[in-house]
Simulated scan of single mutants.
Amino acid sequence: QRKLGTSFHFWKPESSLYALNDEAMALLEQVDLGSFAQTQTVELPYGRKRALEIATTLALDPELMLLDEPTQGMGHEDVGRVVELIRKVAANRTVLMVEHNMNVIANLSDTITVLARGSVLAEGPYETVSKDPRVLEAYVGTVEEV
């Protein structure tokens, strides 16, 4: 609606929004929700709701997307779908993501920055960062010798 300049035209008829239908359907198709176009959001499975959140963000055509734990609370069946969706939408934009699922991080990230108490512990590719002793100590812990 922002593109049409009608975001705050609350009293206009619904038909004034029909010009947005094609773009909305294209966005739904882009996130594999085309078959859910007539489904109310409340009836969507959790993973599909997350895909819809991504579609609404894509509607703004951002150069940078900020995602906060996009796979949190998902079953294994939805995680793979959302990871592939993020990979697809990241093809022509930067995605900055907070994520704690190590499989998602390993599968999706180009560069990882590990923070602990507001400080950068390590930065680089997953293969390097995942073996960094400071990262392991901060997130896995250490074994004390008895």
Rank of each mutant, 00 (worst) to 15 (best):
V83C: 15
T39G: 04
A90T: 10
V82F: 14
P45H: 06
N92S: 14
A106W: 03
V143K: 03
S15F: 03
T6Y: 00
I112C: 06
L66P: 09
E63V: 10
P70F: 15
P62H: 06
E69M: 10
P13H: 02
A106Q: 09
N21T: 09
H9G: 10
Q72K: 06
D78A: 14
M25L: 10
N92H: 06
M97L: 04
L27P: 03
P13N: 04
V83I: 12
H76E: 14
I112W: 02
Y126C: 13
E84C: 03
L136N: 15
S15Y: 01
D32P: 00
E53W: 05
L96P: 04
K131F: 00
R50V: 12
M97S: 03
H100G: 07
M65P: 03
I105V: 09
Q72W: 10
V120N: 03
D132N: 15
T56L: 12
V98F: 08
V140R: 08
L115P: 01
N92Q: 13
Y46K: 04
V82T: 12
E23F: 04
P70R: 11
L58P: 05
L115N: 11
W11C: 09
A24E: 03
S119G: 05
T41Y: 00
V79H: 01
V98N: 08
E63P: 02
D32R: 12
T56M: 14
G5Q: 12
R2Y: 05
Y46W: 08
T57K: 10
L17A: 15
R50T: 11
R50W: 15
D22W: 00
R48M: 13
G34M: 09
Y126D: 14
P133N: 07
Y46R: 02
P70G: 13
I54S: 10
E84Q: 13
G73T: 08
R117E: 15
A90N: 10
E14G: 02
G141P: 13
Q1R: 04
S16C: 09
A116M: 01
I112S: 06
R2I: 15
N21L: 07
N107G: 02
V98C: 07
L58Y: 08
V42I: 10
E29N: 15
H100V: 02
H76Y: 11
L4C: 08
K3C: 13
N101C: 03
P45F: 11
E14Q: 06
E127F: 01
H76G: 11
V120F: 02
G124N: 05
A24S: 08
P125H: 03
D61H: 07
P13W: 02
Q40K: 12
G118M: 01
A55Q: 05
P133V: 04
L115Y: 03
T113D: 08
L67T: 00
E53I: 07
L67R: 00
L64P: 12
I105S: 02
T94I: 09
V89M: 01
E127S: 09
G5S: 13
Q72H: 08
